[in-house]
Design a protein around this nucleic acid. Structure first.
Lengths: 334, 334
DNA sequence: CAGCAATGCACAATCGATTCCACAAACTGC
DNA sequence: GCAGTTTGTGGAATCGATTGTGCATTGCTG
């Protein structure tokens, strides 16, 4: 390998000006075919590549998208959360398909300036926020003056920021209908209570219960977000329960897995005695036993949609929020 | 929010030179305390932040570390792999503790220049490679001329590149000894066969078997890397097996989870009829049922170590590879 | 063959910071 | 009160690319 440090040096070796090199390598502007080929060959041979930072400065674009995971109170636990990690992976794929890099940032939201600070640094061309968490208001405010931002999460009426997420109400309804069809009558809803997404899912469940005249029987089992704590929460509540439910809708797959473990710890058969359905469609759901019935949010598809919308916004378009169709995936837990 | 675009503009508003602003905000160089405070207050009020790209160009550092996941043949599947995702999360934490950002890249290794290309672009100050996969040779070559690189993976004698990983041979030995203590006599090893790490783990197992005079009985159950395919591989092999093993060492937790499912599908009780032990210590292992006994590689600790070594190399030190002590975590699968 | 357009290339400005150097003012010691 | 240091600040070079403008040279048309 050689020691070409910069364009100027390379240009001298090639015997042309830096301008010509730049145009030859980027394929823009008028350069003779012969020169272009000669330069390209030399660059390949010497291993020359234009410096990304300098280019970014000059072109005012970084070709990098920041992915932010706002960590709420349960900071330490989120890090290994399968949902975020899975989503990040899909986003990385979708972005790299379009030539963008992914800058991953764990953010502890502090005050209401954390998003501004991130944007102001100019490290990225646009941002993707995974989950509104407790930061809905901050995101909403920023979205009014900063366009290239797309959020994974729930969608409420009147919302300004562009979000992508499944139709949580519909998904909740799907879940509960499935349990009812399977014969469940004493239904419980397990999961975290805060955040717009979970609320909507719960609403979907309640609505169907009302419609079918079962509404009196809904049991609520609040739990933490994090897998281990969720398991403990659920187990503690189920252990002392007066009448065991025969069907449990979980607010997420992570919660559902906690529910499965709790039931197993209490020696309750799934799906024999209790049926369990999750929400998310994480790959890991297929790997637990019994494999988890769930509402699939089509995360891979969602990631593609997020990136697509973001690119449009980067180009100046204004885009509407999108809902993803939730899909029932029946496995062995119901 | 205001519309300060750059240092020059801000300097005019503040009534001092750009040089002074820069020094005041960065805290380097000689600036009177009074000026410093005034500038800082104004910057806070106007929301001014120096442009990261320009700074990167001038200082010749990006404060960004690239994390590369070389995808072997099983490209499509790796993306949702819990191991990579977990590791990436821990690395993100460790890096941000030191003020570095994490640039995530999925790389399809093509030819032997992919690493050079990545380094040559100048987007990052250093790189972390997760898993040597089939790219051991490329990594080794590059490591001779490019210092700021640390690799998660196995360590072989004479290796030049700096790697961090558990003592795979020792870990394999730990796993098999545990099974033997639990009374297992017909041992199987399940998992992918390529890659230095898995090989070492298998060697550890074999060595202990030899020492205890059980070596004749090792059954090998090769499988794909990816969870779903691994499950199928294992199930197919166990289904037609002449004599079922009573203890299975899996090459990774992901494989182990596939083994658990395969056994469940065949209606074989774990740990009653067959005991299963994994390798990695992924959080998800605690969430499956039965919770997985495993060899913990202390990934969080490992990530911290990788970052620590990388920072040293960035500072010009040469560093040796490190082994992480594998730890037996006993759960319900054995 | 003159006149004009198209082509290929080089010069120099520019992106937005950091930092070396110079210089003036304030301070020190004798 | 003067020489010598310290302190605070500004001017200008610099990082490494991209790109607008201008100047030859070549090719084409009538």
């Amino acid at each position: 390998m050689s020691n070409i440090k910069n364009l100027k040096e390379f240009a001298q070796l090639a015997g042309v000006s830096t301008a010509t090199i730049s145009r030859a390598l980027s394929g823009t502007g008028r350069v003779s075919e012969e020169t272009r080929e000669r330069v390209a060959a030399l660059a390949e041979r010497l291993g020359y590549q234009p410096n990304a930072t300098a280019r970014n400065l000059r072109t005012q674009r970084t070709m990098t998208i920041g992915v932010l995971v706002p960590l709420g109170h349960e900071a330490a636990q989120h890090l290994s959360d399968p949902f975020f990690n899975t989503m990040t992976g899909f986003l990385a794929d979708a972005l790299s398909d379009h030539g963008y890099d992914l800058l991953l940032s764990r953010v502890l939201p502090k005050g209401d300036r954390w998003l501004d600070r991130y944007i102001g640094s100019g490290k990225v061309d646009g941002i993707i926020v995974i989950g509104q968490s407790t930061e809905f208001a901050v995101i909403e405010t920023v979205s009014r003056r900063y366009l290239p931002m797309v959020v994974w999460g729930g969608q409420v009426s009147g919302q300004n920021h562009c979000s992508v997420g499944s139709d949580n109400r519909k998904g909740g309804a799907l879940a509960i209908r499935h349990l009812i069809e399977r014969g469940c009558r004493r239904i419980a809803f397990a999961g975290p209570t805060q955040g717009p997404e979970f609320g909507e899912r719960l609403q979907g469940v309640k609505q169907v219960l009302r419609e079918t005249g079962l509404s009196e029987t809904l049991i609520e089992l609040p739990s933490h977000f994090e897998p281990g704590a969720a398991f403990e929460d659920i187990r503690a509540q189920l252990e002392g329960i007066a009448a065991m439910p025969d069907g449990i809708v979980a607010g997420s797959d992570v919660t559902a897995i906690g529910v499965l473990r709790a039931l197993q710890a209490l020696d309750i058969d799934v799906p024999g005695q209790v049926k369990v359905i999750g929400y998310d469609g994480l790959p890991v759901g297929a790997q637990v036993s019994p494999p988890l019935t769930t509402i699939d949010q089509q995360l891979r598809h969602g990631a593609g949609m997020i990136v697509d919308l973001l690119l449009r916004r980067l180009a100046g378009e204004t885009t509407e929020s999108r809902m993803i169709e939730p899909i029932l995936i029946v496995r062995a837990s119901t």
